[in-house]
Amino acid sequence: MINIASAPFDPGAELSAFEKKASGAGAVVSFIGKVRATAGEDTVKALYLEHYPGVTERSIGEIESEARQRWAIDDAHIIHRVGELQPGEPIVMVCVASAHRREAFEAADFLMDYLKTKAMFWKKEVREGGEAWIEPRKEDYKDAARWRGSARDDEEE
């Protein structure tokens, strides 16, 4: 399930619902990404996230399909915030269920790497010292490249 949320969500409630839904699975892995309160020396006042309705959902759907091709996962749930967020608020949550832990860990790791670098979101940090649009760091692209070897990545890179 893919959910682009314009209002804050409760990760505990989401995980609990996911766990119930995936009751037959032997392993459930979840990750929560949160808004940092600092950017280097500067203080972050807010984070603003925008997306391209329709196209963004499809780009995440493609990422999820690729995860399902690569790992035997029973279920996946991706929630991603848009709009204005405050420091400490969750931005993204990924839940993966599988028969055994390895698939769930790896699929969740893959989903996050691709959400950071391929899903269609744009984010702006509003800092004490001004505003800045954030682009993936070198480390983010390097993390995503760890999964290279699929047909899709070969085409792109």
Partner: peptide, 9 residues
């Protein structure tokens, strides 16, 4: 649509 580099998460 014109898209700058994406950045989610």
């Amino acid at each position: 649509a014109f898209l700058p580099p994406v950045s989610g998460g």
